[in-house]
Design a protein around this nucleic acid. Sequence first.
DNA 1: CGAGCACTTGACGCAGGTCAACTTTGGTGG
DNA 2: CCACCAAAGTTGACCTGCGTCAAGTGCTCG
Lengths: 245, 245
Amino acid sequence: MLDLLALLGAPDIQTESESERDVPLRRLPPRTALFHEGAAADAIYVVRAGTFKCCRTDADGGEQVLGFARRGDVLGYAAVGLGRYTSSAFALEAASVGVVPLADLFNRLRSRPALDRALHQALSLQQAGFEELAGVRAAVPAEARLARFLLHWAQRMAMSGHSLRQIKLTVNRRDIGRLLGIAPETVSRAFAALSVRGCIAVKGRMLDMLDTDGLHVIARFRAGNARPAPDRSWATPRSFAGLNA
Amino acid sequence: MLDLLALLGAPDIQTESESERDVPLRRLPPRTALFHEGAAADAIYVVRAGTFKCCRTDADGGEQVLGFARRGDVLGYAAVGLGRYTSSAFALEAASVGVVPLADLFNRLRSRPALDRALHQALSLQQAGFEELAGVRAAVPAEARLARFLLHWAQRMAMSGHSLRQIKLTVNRRDIGRLLGIAPETVSRAFAALSVRGCIAVKGRMLDMLDTDGLHVIARFRAGNARPAPDRSWATPRSFAGLNA
DNA sequence: CGAGCACTTGACGCAGGTCAACTTTGGTGG
DNA sequence: CCACCAAAGTTGACCTGCGTCAAGTGCTCG
């Protein structure tokens, strides 16, 4: 059993008895599915440990990676409205999740406002993360996408108390490529390019973040020519004549 | 004032008095901002009419389009956890939204379970849509991305009771490009290509969906060569004069 | 300890980004 | 109502980043 409120990052309030806050735990071996795209949904999940890959089958039959989930992330929420999972979730390493059955989800939320609030907070933050992820797929050179991804990943690892310097990537090159929208060979070359610049050091899936500032510069590269984008925090060519502070 | 439950697509239950279900309305002229990225958040919104463009400033200073919102969509939800908007929302045409102040959001949700439930349902569906949007940015040729986008858009229009055949795009080419991760010129060329194949007819922002099945075929094109991906019962590598010329 | 998968590196061609010129649309004022 | 202008869209030419194919090396796990 598992304290859901703590997992969702709620402040440590004590309005509910211990047993009321707990949910059953489910453990997964590496490389197994938590749920499959299209399957009838019976529960949503909150990650307690491990890394998950969220993906869906693309229109062309390929695998589209939507993102990676870590401690505190909610999985399968899209099934609340549809009753079916719209994407699959795979454990990349040994993992465990808290299980919240859909059947009594709303009863639970109604009878425990603190849980409802914690869920909303977590979902909100997750959406913010999702929006940020859209940036790594923007129309920028592969090297910039990888730099953005690494910064994003490092930041999330840091939130789980991990070292900022030494990071173990639990993800293979192919999946990184499928997240960034580039071929795995290009991922390799981009890793090499970042190494040459001295921003990182890579050996297999072990990663050293040597120069975060340098990565931020590269993350600003624009398509076409590899030059850092001009600082245009002032601009905004007057379309949308909203009062831009 | 505005019936929030109906707007969120909740079944027409009558557990609450009329006045309890209503929220203030806000109207927006075309090309004005509902809120700006980074601004302190005081409310979330539910679209009643019009089309919104959701975007954020990319790391390189460019504008990244995250998606387009229509009736029933929730805007600004990412601010629930952060207190600040993580993206901007612009009305592309005259629009109106229901306003739900953040200050008493949780009180409201606690005292009105039906509203909480409706919100969860809507958010869940929205996440499903967001995941589907990731498909249009996948590593596939521009023509396939546009085909996917048009199918996605048409389906959403259909849900608002619109015609499936004749569609008015409220979005300009630049913004479509920024959503799909391709240059506006390429959007133009992709429109032209789909026209030549006879799948659509375009004149400015008026769009005719002539051959939905054909669009689905093109949506399966893979990167590199322009061939339909898995199902190769009728392989024709280069120029098939169109199913509907 | 071996086999298969993950990763790296090189060569080559093309889809699409950039630049540029032109046409059309829509909005505004005379 | 039409002349005018700026923004939006289209089309063409050129060139480069990266996808594909291919061959080789190193891990990981069984």
